[in-house]
């Protein structure tokens, strides 16, 4: 292009309407597209890139979820305790209601919204295959759930180190808690994702997910409570623990850390079964999600 000062005889610049200009730049492959979808989905799960109102719920829940950790930090700083008042892994078990509400309310943002508003047709008309789309959505929800679970652990760990608790003990316990958080996030993202993808109504998906998580956990807790009493049969409680993500988490937490829970898995075989069920449940849910969107593409 020539010197703009020569654009007119008077030396003034002018705006040219160039008309339609074709795009000749770089076009990225499926991997980059999927990554971009995961990042956008992750932001959307916290209401970012959406209306101001949709940011309220996720950030209120996240704030409430972090509040106990911050209080613990204050207590540790001023109280001079020699151990954390709440274990890393115990934390998620204590705030499980907030966690349940978070995944139940944000899974529809990632799964129901596109189906409800027909946006899925636009995604499917683009290079990404339906299966990859489903996996990217699931990854976004998993990442958002992990942020919800891992941030308190990070805060507690930082507090523990700042108050000069034993580094190796704290690191080991925080590591176990991280592993448990990943297992719980995998299963919660899967379960809530499947429910949200089969229900295009946001309200229904939220209620169904919370009901499933709370009711299943409630029934399991009752059974475990009864079987864990003196004279009861703990093995019944151990098996019952296999039927809810929260009780699976609780059982493994009691088996691997100092925390208490009714009828934790008493044998290595049972511990493996707990881990196996969590992984299998997640895999099953991912499979269902892929199948759901493949069907959507060809219908």
């Amino acid at each position: 292009m020539s010197d703009p000062s020569e654009a007119t005889p008077q030396g003034r610049s002018v705006i040219h309407d160039l008309g339609y200009r074709p795009y000749t730049g770089q076009r990225l492959g499926a991997g980059a597209i999927a990554r971009s979808l995961v990042v956008t989905g992750f932001r959307n799960a916290f209401g970012l890139g959406r209306s101001g109102r949709s940011k309220v719920l996720p950030f209120v829940l996240l704030g409430l979820n972090l509040l106990p950790a911050l209080i613990v930090g204050g207590v540790m700083a001023f109280g001079g305790l020699d151990r954390l008042p709440i274990g890393y892994a115990e934390y998620a078990s204590t705030t499980q209601v907030l966690l349940g509400v978070f995944v139940a309310s944000q899974a529809p943002v990632l799964f129901s919204r596109d189906l409800r508003h027909g946006t899925i047709a636009l995604y499917l008309a683009r290079p990404l295959r339906s299966g990859a789309y489903a996996l990217a959505r699931w990854a976004s929800l998993l990442a958002a759930t992990l942020v919800f679970l891992v941030l308190p652990i990070v805060i507690l760990y930082a507090v523990a180190l700042l108050t000069e608790l034993d580094v190796s003990d704290q690191t080991r316990e925080a590591g176990i808690a991280l592993g448990l958080a990943v297992l719980l996030a995998l299963s919660l993202a899967g379960v809530s994702g499947v429910i949200a993808s089969w229900s295009t109504r946001r309200g229904f998906a939220v209620v169904a997910t919370i009901a499933l998580l709370v009711v299943a956990n409630g029934i399991v807790t009752v059974v475990q409570g009864i079987s864990g009493e003196e004279g009861g049969r703990p093995v019944v409680g151990e098996v019952a623990g296999l039927f809810s993500p929260y009780s699976l988490y609780r059982g493994l937490m009691a088996a691997w850390t100092d925390a208490d829970a009714p009828t934790p898995p008493s044998t290595t075989g049972m511990e493996l079964a707990y881990v196996g069920v969590l992984v299998a449940l997640s895999a099953l849910c991912v499979g269902l999600l892929v199948a759901r969107y493949r069907r959507e593409a060809t219908s």
Partner: peptide, 25 residues
């Protein structure tokens, strides 16, 4: 597409950017 396909809580500007990226830009 013939039917509605726009999410109501996103601006056209953000949405078109997102969709262009979904095509690899």
């Amino acid at each position: 597409p013939e039917h509605d396909c726009l999410p109501p809580d996103v601006s056209a500007s953000d949405f078109v950017v997102h969709m262009a990226m979904m095509s690899g830009l």
